[in-house]
Write a protein that binds this DNA or RNA. Structure first.
Lengths: 127, 127
DNA sequence: GTTAGTAGTTACCCAAAGGAAAGCGGTTAC
DNA sequence: GTAACCGCTTTCCTTTGGGTAACTACTAAC
């Protein structure tokens, strides 16, 4: 299989396919937390509470559930170290790293979007 | 404002900021349909039923709701043409086009991900 | 009048997402 | 013994997302 990406005119042609691709990607990456969790663990492996502290705003229930989902889908591994007490570290797999470009673009866009929202808040103070 | 992107080592440094950016981006782009809708309308402006046919699987209720959300957030405009009967066309704004890089990467990843899922299905036929 | 199409709205319902708080089994510190 | 920390699990709850189907107002064609 060969994939040719025209990076001067991204997505003007080949529309239907990319639509399906995006839908498929979102199927496995949906929700508030999956991409942030992957990003956090790609940056460095972490323990449960470390993740919870870094992300901020995620409950332990949701965190446990999302970690299971990510493990099942091969994005992270759960490593148990036989220390006393037992230490558990979550680590991003190589497959997580295939999302680096997505996360880079999403981060760049998110930063720019925050600026834009701040500006429009200034213009229209509040509803 | 100046943004320097190190494209050789994306995201190894500047971790906390990108995490927040991604969370912010997902705040406005969450759900199954927003990115597919934006993508569809960036490709060409469309009428209600045309969108529904192209996307496939979205109900008119959800489509109407999502279109309102996207219009409120400045991603699309709703144009009413005084034909008989009245014609309504949804059109992507320039702001939608700032998501082109995100969508290109997400589409590329989604296509590759589908291949990977197909392969692992072959190895482990079914649970 | 009936049918069909356009662009939705409304009502009803279910499932999943997500949050708060408590608990649990183990260990370590005091 | 008691308190605290780790890595969760459990319970209860609300919100959101999403689906179905019926229905509306308008127009045009038959």
């Amino acid at each position: 299989m060969k994939i040719t990406v025209d990076d001067t005119l991204p997505g003007i042609a080949e529309c239907a396919g990319s639509l399906k691709n995006v839908v498929d990607a979102l199927y496995v990456l949906n929700g508030k937390w999956k991409l942030p969790l992957i990003l956090s663990l790609v940056q460095s492996s972490k323990r449960f509470n470390e993740i919870q502290n870094e992300i901020g705003g995620i409950s332990s229930k949701i965190l446990a559930k999302e970690l299971k989902h990510l493990e099942l889908n091969d994005f992270i591994t759960r490593n148990v170290y036989p220390t006393t007490p037992v230490t558990i570290r979550y680590e991003a797999t190589d497959y997580s790293r295939t999302l680096q470009n997505v996360m880079r673009e999403l981060s760049a866009w998110g930063g720019q979007h925050r600026e834009k929202v701040k500006q429009s808040m200034r213009k229209q103070p509040q509803v």
